[in-house]
Design a protein around this nucleic acid. Structure first.
Lengths: 101, 101
DNA sequence: CTATATACATAGTATCACTAGGTATCTTGT
DNA sequence: ACAAGATACCTAGTGATACTATGTATATAG
């Protein structure tokens, strides 16, 4: 979900995504390369992303762009994430009152 | 985390936990028995829970109770969960909430 | 010219959720 | 009495996937 969200704002390549996630999350969402690259391929296989090789600064980079199908999945993931937070916080902190956070 | 949290308020047995999670979450946190029972044993192996057979209403039930070590782990999980929400929401909705930048 | 950072990749392992069964008891409807 | 369903626990097998460790190649800094 976080990767799709990052790519919903601009195209990025794998290594850039890992550095960005790391920086934006203060190290909480550090993702190993052995996890990231296979994941990006899975997301592309499923049609959520479209990858494209480009050569910049003497380096071969695979830039990823989110697809309309990916945007749709991202919307559903965001909605589910919001529900999950509510539900889990309800279990963690009891009260049915909607006014926390 | 949700199971530890439920057990931090009272002792429960496996089947009861699954029904409670299902009800409290509106079906979002439905957990299959093939997932639940092995999970409870792992949590007990790690010393987070203590299980005990009891016979009530003609049924053999294994009641689980959270241990001090389990309470400690639960506290850390709750803290991490709060950080995770902040960090993920920051990535999902842009960086306004955390006071960073 | 060596070390580090960048950039992508794969193989092997471990974890764990799920499917799909199994056993046994108790309750409810006919 | 009998069948069906709910309760209550269990295991074996499979699949998805995060991780470790390593390999390849180029560019940059000391």
């Amino acid at each position: 979900m976080c990767i799709l969200s990052l790519l919903s704002t601009r195209e990025m390549y794998g290594y850039e995504i890992s550095k960005e996630l790391d920086a934006l999350s203060g190290g909480i969402l550090r993702i190993e390369e052995g996890t990231l690259y296979p994941l990006l391929r899975r997301l592309e296989e499923r049609g959520y992303l479209k990858g494209e090789w480009r050569y910049r600064e003497g380096k071969a980079r695979r830039y990823y762009k989110i697809t309309p199908r990916g945007m749709d999945v991202l919307r559903k993931m965001r909605a589910f994430w919001a529900v999950l937070i509510t539900v889990v916080n309800n279990i963690l902190y009891g009260g049915e009152s909607g006014g926390r956070e």
